[in-house]
């Protein structure tokens, strides 16, 4: 009567259930709605005379036509950068900080552990769902930013300027769109480190809010310190330095070696967070 499927055979279904839990929550929808509002807000601010004039000066000083390059694509990249930095980190920290700790707090983790579930497998499922969520969120930001940008400003060339990463690039529409797609994918990839850190703290015996706050504190402290001149020679030790590499895909000649090196660095942080999270969670006692 009973089908002999071990817990490993049910792995894809378990990931599916985790994603259902994440995406069926009302606050997920509220959060996505907030992103959309935030994107429209940024876009509206960019339509004000001062920011517009600043773009015009920059483009025309370099001999480019403002009307062509101040386009939906250009604005979409600006929106993605702002939304991902200001709200994306916050949202990823909140979701990943909740992923284990909230279930422990609510008691659903106890219900799950009433069954013979290997704790390590359970955590891998949860971490993977965090990764999928990170990609889904960043693709949502990318897609809606582009849509909002095109509606407001229309089609045209792409202009990217990032003094922090030292990027100044100009592309025609088609290639600009391809570069933007690649950039959003890379941004999602590097943002997984925020989710991994949140996941790690969520595995500790702490409240979900504490896990999210500590994660955010680490990310922002890292960002601030990496921008201090005193640490200019030690950039390689900061997460922000490696996370910034997503902007480098806008360079005419993409520096793949440097980008992959950063990716390996961030991958090591992800793996460490996952491993330590599993190690600590496996040793924990569960008692209300």
């Amino acid at each position: 009567m009973r089908m002999s499927a071990g817990p490993l055979a049910l792995f894809p279904r378990q990931v599916g259930h985790e994603l259902t839990k994440l995406f069926a929550r009302p606050r997920t929808h509220i959060g996505f709605g907030m992103f959309l509002l935030f994107e429209i807000l940024i876009l509206s601010l960019l339509q004000l005379p001062k920011p517009k004039a600043s773009y015009q000066r920059m483009l025309e000083a370099n001999g480019y036509l403002f009307e062509h390059y101040f386009s939906g694509l250009t604005l979409a990249v600006v929106i993605v950068t702002s939304a991902a930095f200001l709200l994306g980190a916050l949202f990823l920290a909140l979701v990943s900080g909740d992923i284990v700790a909230k279930e422990v707090e609510d008691g659903t983790m106890r219900m799950i552990l009433n069954r013979p579930v290997p704790r390590a497998q359970l955590l891998v499922v949860k971490w993977l769902s965090c990764v999928v969520y990170t990609f889904a969120l960043l693709f949502f930001i990318g897609g809606t930013s582009l849509a909002v940008g095109l509606i407001f400003q229309g089609w045209g060339g792409l202009f990217v300027y990032s003094p922090l990463a030292g990027v100044f690039a100009i592309y025609e529409g088609g290639e600009g769109l391809a570069r933007m797609g690649l950039a959003v994918f890379w941004l999602a990839l590097v943002s997984c480190v925020i989710s991994s850190i949140g996941f790690f703290f969520s595995c500790l015996p702490v409240k979900p809010a504490a896990a999210s706050i500590v994660t955010l504190a680490i990310i922002f402290a890292d960002f601030v310190m990496s921008n201090l001149p005193q640490f200019a020679d030690h950039q390689v030790w900061f997460l922000s330095y490696h996370m910034r590499t997503w902007v480098l895909v806008f360079e005419p000649l993409i520096p793949w070696a440097g980008i992959l090196e950063s990716l390996l660095w961030l991958g090591a942080v992800n793996a460490t967070c996952l491993f330590l999270g599993i190690l600590i969670f496996s040793q924990r006692d569960f008692k209300s």
Binding site: M1, R2, L10, Q14, T20, A24
Partner: peptide, 19 residues
């Protein structure tokens, strides 16, 4: 925020496939 059936499915699928 999930149905009773979906809850049962989630708890069951963590350990084995239940017909």
């Amino acid at each position: 925020y999930l149905s009773g059936y979906r809850n049962l499915r989630i708890f069951a699928d963590y350990s084995e496939r239940v017909p």
